[in-house]
Nucleic acid binder design. Structure first.
Length: 385
DNA sequence: GGAATTTGACCGTTA
DNA sequence: CTAACGGTCAAATTC
């Protein structure tokens, strides 16, 4: 299901023009997602809503997925932990410590890897997921940008860079939460790679800027492949750790050859069960952006994982895309929002997934149908509500 | 010397 | 209408 729904996203028009790309859908952010709805609310999505013209596809299918990033993976992300197990605090957005992992410990371990990670943010995080949980993760799809915020997470740390399954296991084991670990294993895992060497693509930095609301400088990168419209924004903390990555557009080319590619984690094996091998990732101009804020986490947005999503009903998708306000909106939902308890704050950040759409009626991942009746910027929260 | 990065200016959007 | 903000450009600098 998830894969199909993402595939829809992939069908967006492939316009080489970035402007157009940026104009892609304007997604309405679902607060529930970020704040963490009551388990009950999310945990029991309707089996399938007949509401959508294309029942098989969730409206969310309108969301685009970042290059190389599989939506299904996203949905499966660990951040989407089963609410029954982990519930983010509605107020703080952070998870209770008693969750499955020992976040703090993981984080500390992670710190050791920070340096290396800086250049090879190959760290990978994998999350387990449940569709309904999508909202609670750090992944955000907005304005044609999809952002997966894997904020540092401590939550992500268990996934050490370069790491992989083994390290993940180790981390979990250390956390001492066996039960959680078991849960983790039982869930589909997703890894996301980010950054040049990590995601397998080559990037050229074309700008850096200090943005308001974040003490971290934001760097702008373009894919160096000729005519590839893909861009990404990276925010780094003072210590050099990446706090957030946002992808824009999709690669219209195959991933550069592997030698550079993140050999670690994202290996197909890890994703394999969650996502069938994609056949053709590029080619679809993907309107999605993915943001990841992993510290150690790796965000891999490789096309590989991502492609299969393309089968779908293009028409509807386009429809929504049209609404999209002009781009220049890498702006993702709040940088500081919720999850991140503070820059540099290594405390727990909850992964989250936020989806924004411009349509009046949205059917989000949770399977429910939502009608937007207003939008407002709330003081103290950079993100529109 | 070429490629990549840095950095201030410019421009479009938004409030 | 204007100022603020964020994204991009491109010259200068560094590697």
């Amino acid at each position: 299901m998830t894969s199909s729904f993402f595939s829809d996203l992939l069908n967006s028009p492939t316009d080489q023009n970035l402007k157009d790309t940026e104009r892609s859908q304007n997604h309405v952010l679902s607060d529930q997602n970020r704040l963490g709805l009551p388990p009950k609310f999310k945990s029991t999505p309707p089996p399938s809503l007949p509401l959508s013209p294309t029942p098989l596809f969730s409206p969310s299918s309108y969301f685009s997925i970042p290059p190389g990033f599989s939506l299904s993976e996203l949905l499966d992300s660990p951040v989407l932990l089963n609410s029954s197990h982990i519930l983010p605090s509605p107020t703080t957005g952070s998870f209770a410590n008693n969750q499955g992992f020992n976040w703090k410990n993981n984080y500390e371990e992670k710190q050791e890897n920070v340096k290396a990670e800086e250049e090879t943010i190959s760290s990978s995080f994998s999350f387990q997921a449940q569709p309904a949980g999508f909202q609670s993760s750090n992944a955000i799809v907005q304005n044609g940008w999809s952002m997966v915020k894997a904020e540092n997470s401590s939550s992500m740390q268990s996934f050490t860079p370069e790491s992989n399954s083994t390290s993940e296991q180790n981390n979990y084991n250390k956390s001492g939460s066996q039960s959680n670990y078991n849960n983790y294993q039982s869930q589909p895992q997703v890894q996301i790679l980010s950054r040049r060497s990590d995601d397998g693509y080559n990037w050229r930095k074309y700008g850096q800027k200090q943005v308001k609301g974040s003490e971290n400088p934001r760097s702008y990168y373009k894919c160096t492949y000729p005519n590839c419209p893909t861009k990404k924004k990276v925010e780094r903390g003072l210590d050099g750790q990446i706090t957030e990555i946002v992808y824009k557009g999709s690669h219209n080319h195959p991933k550069p050859v592997a030698n550079k590619r993140n050999t670690n984690s994202m290996s197909s094996s890890s994703l394999s069960h969650a996502n069938p091998p994609p056949s053709n990732h590029f080619g679809n101009e993907i309107q999605m952006d993915l943001v990841a804020t992993p510290e150690n986490s790796s965000i891999s947005i490789g096309d590989d994982e991502f492609e299969q999503t393309s089968h779908k009903s293009g028409g509807d998708h386009d429809q929504y895309c049209e609404d999209e306000p002009d781009a220049k909106k890498w702006r993702i939902e709040g940088e500081n929002e919720g999850i991140s308890l503070g820059v540099g704050n290594r405390t727990v950040r909850e992964p989250r997934v936020v989806v924004q759409t411009t349509s009046d009626i949205d059917i989000l991942d949770d399977g429910y149908r939502w009608r937007k009746y207003g939008q407002k910027v709330v003081k103290g929260n950079p993100n529109p509500r």
